[in-house]
């Protein structure tokens, strides 16, 4: 279990966390709370993308797959190439499997600029799944996806075997993930 103890973090003068402590539920933790409340910052701190001013974050697994709030796809690569980019050479041929998981096999050869926002989001999700690891940190992975697709994709991620920390903006998504709920900034 990831343990956050006595954490301080701020962006310049804006304090996001002050003496914040938390035992992150596992295997699934759903992070909720108002916009600007610190959900993304918490995920970035856990993934090691931000350094806390004070305090500790313990028991974070070695390999963390982080899905950013923005797609951050390489616009010059196709969907399949974006996924393959995070795979070792010997496993690059498996990129299609991850696109299939997010129901984007037909768009494997298409570049992100020619896809909708929801489709780009799914490529970013496929990329995080392909990178794998012991912990999946997913920042708004279902943004822009219709409910039917969300219902089909979430169970596939849950069977992945890794611990998951995910942000959610709706009760519908929170129920689907079905893990322990962490509220920040509320």
């Amino acid at each position: 279990m990831i343990r956050i103890s006595d954490l301080d973090f701020s962006y310049g003068d804006k304090v996001v966390f002050e003496s914040f402590s938390l035992d992150v539920p596992s295997p699934v933790a759903v992070v909720t709370g108002p916009s600007g409340g610190g959900k993304t910052t918490l995920l970035r701190l856990i993934a090691g993308l931000e350094k806390p001013g004070r305090g500790t974050i313990d028991n974070v697994p070695g390999r963390v797959a982080f899905m950013f709030q923005e797609d951050r796809l390489l616009p010059w690569l196709t969907a399949a190439q974006n996924v393959a980019a995070v795979l070792p050479r010997s496993r690059r041929h498996t990129a299609g499997t991850y696109l299939e998981m997010v129901e984007l096999s037909a768009e494997a050869g298409t570049k992100p600029g020619e896809l909708s926002g929801g489709q780009r989001r799914r490529i970013a999700l496929a990329r995080a799944l392909a990178y794998g690891g012991d912990l999946l940190v997913l920042d708004e992975p279902l943004k822009g996806l219709d409910p039917g697709l969300t219902e089909r994709i979430v169970p596939k991620i849950l069977t992945f075997g890794a611990d998951i920390i995910v942000t959610s903006h709706s009760d519908f998504e929170t129920k689907l993930w079905g893990g322990g709920i962490v509220t920040v900034g509320g």
Partner: peptide, 21 residues
Amino acid sequence: ASLLEMGRAYGFDAVKRLRLI
């Protein structure tokens, strides 16, 4: 910078960062 951070998060080495980003 956001693509470079993505590369760091996904463990891109220097050659991969150069070639892909």
